[in-house]
Each structure stands twice: as C-alpha cells, then as structure tokens.
Write a protein that binds this DNA or RNA. Structure first.
Length: 714
DNA sequence: AGCACGCCGACT
DNA sequence: GTCGGCGTGCTC
C-alpha cells in the first residue's frame, strides 16, 4: 500500500534533478518566459503537469499558492487534497556536485492540478506525495480561506487547525460502510418551544433554518441537540455539533447513541487521543459518517452535504481557539452556514450579545420557550443585596445573610445543596461604590484603573480622569471588590457538621453527586450534576464575577449563575437559588426573571451606543511602544478606523508561567485597539494582514502581535 | 522565517 | 588576490 511506503528523503536521479539543472540555466540566461516550458526533457505527468500547492508556512507574506511540476511517477498519487512535501526556500535549485543544496523539505497540501502555471520561471518538482489520501477538500479550503481573511491570519495557520495530523495506521484501515438515513425523529423536548417542532421539520425537509435557541433549564439539551441532528440526517444530509468541552461532548454523544444507535456519528475530542481522533475524522472525511459531535477543532470537520451546524454554549471561552489567528467557533460556523447554505443552531442556557445580535439583525430566528414553560422548569431565585446584608445582624456575625442560611438548611432536608464560590485570581475592577456600575472613560468608554493612589487612568486610551462621577447614579466614590467566599463555604461546612461536604474545582472536577443531602462546593464551570437535581443553590461569587474589568463581566456572571441554577430542581419541587448580589444589577435581574435573552438585548443596545463589539469590530496590536506605533502608522488603515491608545499592558504577575501573549522578559509591551464600524471588518483585517506581511518580510523590523476580536478588551 | 547572493575590510 | 562580514531579497 503506497500510503504505508516509506518515502525517500531525496528523490533519486531523474526528472526533479533535471528540472533543477534546467532552471539553473534559465536563471543564468535571465530570460523569463511567459509560458515556462522549462521541463522540456524531464519526465512529467502527461496531463495537468502543474500542481498548485499551499505550503505549510504560517508566515503571512508566503500566504499564496506555489506551483510545482508533477513528475510522471507521482502522477497517480498527486491528486487534489493530498499531503505533499516540497523543496521550499531560497536556493532550492542550486546544484553543486550533482547534489541539491539549500531549501528544506516542507509540508504542504496539493490543492489543484493544472495544465499551465502563471509563474514566470521554472518550476521545481514535487518532492513526494506523503499519502494518496485526499484530506483537504474544496469546502474546507474555502472555509479556511474565509477564516484566515476574517482574522487577518494565514491560510496555512488555519489549515493546521482544520486538518488533523496524519496517522498512517488509521489511514490504512478502511472506514465502516455508511448507513442509510434514519427516520425523522419525534420532536421530543422541542415541543416545549413555540417554534421548536417547525425548526425540526425544516431540517427534516432539507431546509436551512437558522436559530438562536435559549434552552430551558434541566438536563434535556443534549437530547434536543441529538434530535436536531437526527432530523438533518433524515433528509440525507450531514450535521455538526460543537460543544465547549469533552464532558459535554460525551453527553451529546450519549444522546445521539440513544437516539440513532451506533455507527451514525463520530465523536471528535482531544480526549480520545490522536490516533482514534484521526480515525473518526477520516470516517467523516470519507463520507461513512455524516454526523459529528466534538470540541472546538471539530468546527472544521469535513462533513459531506452539510445540512446543520450547531454550537452549544457560545459564551464559554473554550470556543475561542488559542492558536493564531484565534478563530471563534461561533464565527466559523456562521461562515460555514453561509458558505455551505446549511442550517444553523446556536443553543445556550444563557445568551451572548453576539447571539442577540444574530436575532436582532434578522439573520437567525429566536427559539425560546413561553414564560409559562420557563416558570415550570426554573427554580425560585432570591437575592441578598448590600442593604439587607448591612441590616442583617446574623449576616455580619457569620458573614452570610440569614436568608442564605435558611435556604441551605431547608435544602439539606431534601437533597444536595450547591454552593458556587469564586475562582481564585479574579481581579475585581473599579466600580461606583453606590450602584456598582463599572467606572468607564468618558472619551472612549474603556475601563478605568487606579495605578497610583489618586489618579484614574483609562486602560484603553491612557487618558487621565481627574473628576470622575458615576453617570448612572451621580455617585463619585469608587471601590474595588474583595473576595472571601471560599472561607465562607468552609464555615458553612462547619455549621452543618452532620452533612458531608464535597468540593469540585480546577484540580478535581466531580462529574455527578448522588441524590442525598450534601454540601457541594464548586467553582463556576465545575458544578457536578445531581441525579435528581439540587434542592438549593447558593451563589456567593457575585462580587468577584461582576467586578471584573471586562466587557463580558455581566454576561459571564449571568451565564455561570444560570449554569449552576439550571442544576436545581424547579420551583414546583421546592428548588431555590439564593444569589448574594445587588438585586438592581442587570445580570441579577436577568437571573431572577430567568431572561438571558432580554439581558443580552439590553447589553447589545448599550454596546451599540458605546460603539463596542460586536456592534463595532475591534482588533488589538501589541508589542513594544516603538513597534506598535510604527505598525499603526505604516498600516493603510481604512479611514473610518479609530485608534485607541497605546496603553501599557499590565505585566504578568511574577511567578506565573509564561503564556504566549506575554511580553518577553525585560520588555514592556503596549497595546492599541483599532475600532471600525460594522461592515468595515473586512478592510480592517485586510489592512492588518498586509501590514503584518510587509513587516515580517523585512527581517529586522520589530514584531507585533495582531488579534482580531481580542477577548480581554476590558 | 531561513537562506543565498552581494559588495566592502583584514589576512596569506 | 580571497575569505568572510551580515545587509537585502526571494522562496513556485
């Protein structure tokens, strides 16, 4: 089998070497030909002797196709989509003593076979075909191209995310035969949503409906996702579901198996290991499996005849890739839905402003339950604010309000009680002492910080604020938040000595807890599922979550509360949630009314007014002050682009392991934010890409990091 | 990014 | 005369 054959390091004497020699003469003669006939005499593929190759180098100024000659012996294997290796680099053609020197072998993908080349010069030959398995189809190529353009990145970088590394053993095994389409499923839990059955019907009829689904609390969402997949398969098309982590992928996997049996879907997660993952990926690529559930990288899965793309919990930060150019699953799936004209489903317990914008713009329809259904499924939510805390004698003594004590005590009579405590390392920002509104710059609305004792400085534009007052309530005093909830939880455990205390957090995450009275202390995101639902939940991390100097602080807080509260029994079964946070705050209201979509709509209106993403598009440029300034000056930014900053980046705390975005030791990095109005995202990305390409091409120029849609814009 | 080619100083 | 410094520019 040729895929298993060991390929020669250096092609033997023959066509490639002759080509190189011919090229040498052409170069000396300095007579470039419009139509290179330089392979005269070499043994080339009789038909379509030119291979267009995307070279696996992420560097932006190499973000183009390169043409290579196809030697006759590679003719059969060198088909579009295969992995190849080629000589690449200056001097690849120098021949001395009959040996080639310079220009190392690099990986690439063959994207097209052509009759002629546009290149004015002689072509080097393909070194060899790594394997005849076509892994890069035209769909994935077009998608990767669009993603690279959207994020000012290179095609090769995106392809690295899109096509998994090869595993020879998996490739040599045949994939199982494809199964016929299953029958269309019953609506199941979808009948609880006004437009749910219609959405399923549209999928089953081969349509391309697009929806933002605000899911009801409870454990049903994996089954509902599975039904959407099944409906798509019933129409003879494929479906793709992307979830934030392996735990949730396993839940959807189980739901799919329950609904469709084995063999109709693939599970693409890092947890299954590279070989198994590649085997599953190949089964998809070869068309033997048409449904996929997986984590982030699965967003590129080459599903045949795609009918539906779905993302669950788009507010989870795992959906943002941490490799250049940092694509986000939601954005990639939007591009895919447009490109492949398929259905789109964004589901979540919460609602991001981006999701709200998809509905607001009319691109997607809302898929929400009636209030009655929400009330039947959600627990009772009660709040304890500052005033009550101050009045509450017991609370001051025990640092916990009596309402919270009561809820825990009552809950423990009938089942487990969840206590959500903040994760360490949440740095609260500055806010109004009276109403907690975050302190923002009056010029660019960036977050204010207090580097010294007295003065306030904007983290975005570096302007000083000397006379701050709160635009919401007129207050003029600021305060930072203090966290001490872990200790509170410990005290809580001591207060109920007869009850077992279980903890779940970063280090050891519990999957599930039994349906018995217990105190379950967890950080956000690590909450175990309780078999019969929690009797009560206590959310103690309000200040830490809401005080973060981040645009998404409110949305994130609400999402984490909803995630925890959704594990609690409905109000009709006595389920109660107590959140220790100011009841007038918008996210707290969103929780009490269980109205994440309404919360996101209001946030979106604010963002529009303040010209924040996603209503505007932003990009960040970081590096030394000189580098950043030179870059911004040289980039031909669109005229409507605003430049905010530069401001100095906070240096990483000493002792923390170095992360990719951190400045090198001893260097101070600055950041500018670039902002463009809606619709100017593409020209901004193009300008940034061109400037970055020019910069990396010149060796000596100090480098900067560019990121479209930066996450932490304050 | 690598890597080769090219045009100026200290050596046999 | 020639070995080699690293400044520029290219990579099918």
């Amino acid at each position: 089998m040729s895929s298993e054959e060991k390929q020669p390091e250096e092609p033997g004497a023959g066509a490639p070497e002759q080509l190189a020699l011919i090229r040498e003469t052409v170069r000396k003669a300095r007579t470039p030909r419009a139509k290179p006939r330089t392979w005269r005499g070499a043994e080339l593929a009789p038909e379509l002797p030119v291979a267009r190759v995307v070279v696996n180098k992420g560097v932006l100024h190499l973000d183009q196709y390169f043409d290579y000659a196809v030697p006759a012996e590679l003719d059969a294997d060198a088909q579009p989509g295969v992995r190849v290796r080629v000589r690449f680099g200056a001097g690849a053609h120098r021949v001395r003593d009959g040996r080639r020197e310079g220009g190392g072998l690099v990986d690439g993908f063959l994207v097209e076979r052509r009759a002629t080349s546009d290149y004015r010069g002689a072509l080097a030959a393909l070194a060899y075909v790594v394997s005849p398995e076509p892994v890069l189809g035209p769909g994935t190529l077009a998608l990767a191209r669009a993603v690279a353009d959207r994020y000012a990145g290179s095609l090769a970088d995106v392809l690295q995310l899109a096509v998994p590394p090869r595993n020879g053993r998996a490739e040599s095994e045949p994939s199982p035969p494809a199964l016929p389409p299953p029958p269309a499923p019953a609506p199941g839990g979808w009948s609880r949503y006004a437009r749910g059955p219609a959405f399923l019907r549209a999928l089953a009829e081969g349509g391309a409906p697009r929806a933002v689904w605000t899911a009801l609390p409870g454990p049903h969402w994996p089954d509902e996702l599975a039904r959407a997949v099944a409906a798509t398969l019933a129409a003879g098309r494929g479906a793709l579901v992307v979830v934030p982590d392996g735990k949730r992928a396993a839940r959807v996997d189980a739901a799919l198996t329950a609904l469709l049996g084995e063999g109709r879907h693939a599970l693409l997660t890092a947890e299954s290991g590279p070989a198994e993952r590649y085997r599953q990926w190949l089964a998809v690529r070869r068309g033997s499996v048409r449904a996929v559930v997986g984590t982030r990288a699965a967003m590129f899965a080459p599903v045949e005849a795609l009918g539906l793309v779905a993302i669950w919990d788009d507010g989870d930060s795992s959906h943002s890739d941490e490799n250049a150019p940092f694509p986000h699953v939601r954005e990639v799936l939007e591009l895919r839905a447009a490109q492949e004209r398929c259905g789109f489903l964004l589901g979540s317990l919460g609602c991001t402003v981006e999701a709200a914008q998809l509905v607001e713009s009319g691109w997607a329809l809302p898929l929400a339950a009636e209030r009655e259904q929400v009330r039947a499924a959600a627990p009772l939510v009660r709040t304890v604010g500052d005033q009550e805390l101050a009045r509450d004698e017991a609370a001051r003594a025990a640092r916990l309000p009596s309402l919270a004590w009561q809820a825990v005590r009552d809950g423990l009579r009938t089942g487990p009680v969840l206590v959500q405590v903040p994760r360490r390392g949440y740095v609260p920002g500055l806010g109004c002492e009276r109403c907690r509104a975050p302190a923002r710059c009056r010029h660019c609305a960036g977050p204010l910080e207090a580097p010294g004792e007295r003065d306030l400085v904007c983290r975005w534009c570096a302007r000083e604020e000397t006379a701050w007052h709160c635009p919401e309530c007129g207050g003029f005093r600021l305060r930072a938040r203090v966290v001490g909830a872990q200790r509170t939880a410990e005290e809580l455990g001591r207060a109920f000595p007869a009850v077992p205390v279980r903890t779940s957090g970063r280090d050891h995450v519990l999957d599930a807890v039994p349906d018995r009275p217990a105190l379950v202390v967890s950080t956000p995101g690590a909450e175990p599922v309780a078999e019969g639902g929690y009797a009560a939940a206590l959310l103690l991390d309000g200040w830490a979550l809401l005080g973060r100097p981040d645009l998404r602080a409110g949305e994130d807080a609400l999402r984490r509360w909803l995630d925890a509260a959704a594990l609690v029994r409905p109000q009709s079964e006595g389920g109660t949630v107590v959140v220790v946070a100011e009841p007038t705050l918008r996210p707290v209201q969103g929780l009490v009314r269980w109205d994440p979509a309404g919360h996101a709509r209001r946030e979106l209106a604010d963002r529009a007014e303040l010209r924040f993403p996603p209503v505007s598009r932003m990009a960040s440029v970081t590096g030394t002050l000189a580098a950043v300034e030179a870059f911004v000056a040289s980039a031909g930014l669109p005229p409507e682009a605003e430049v905010l900053g530069p401001v100095r980046l906070p240096s990483p705390p000493p002792g923390r392991p170095r992360r990719p975005g951190d400045p090198p030791p001893g260097e101070v990095w600055e950041r500018v934010l670039l902002r463009v109005p809606p619709g100017s995202g593409a020209p901004l990305a193009a300008a940034l890409k061109a400037a970055q390409a020019a910069r990396t091409a010149r060796g000596g120029a100090p480098q900067v990091r560019v990121r479209v849609d930066p996450l932490d814009i304050g």
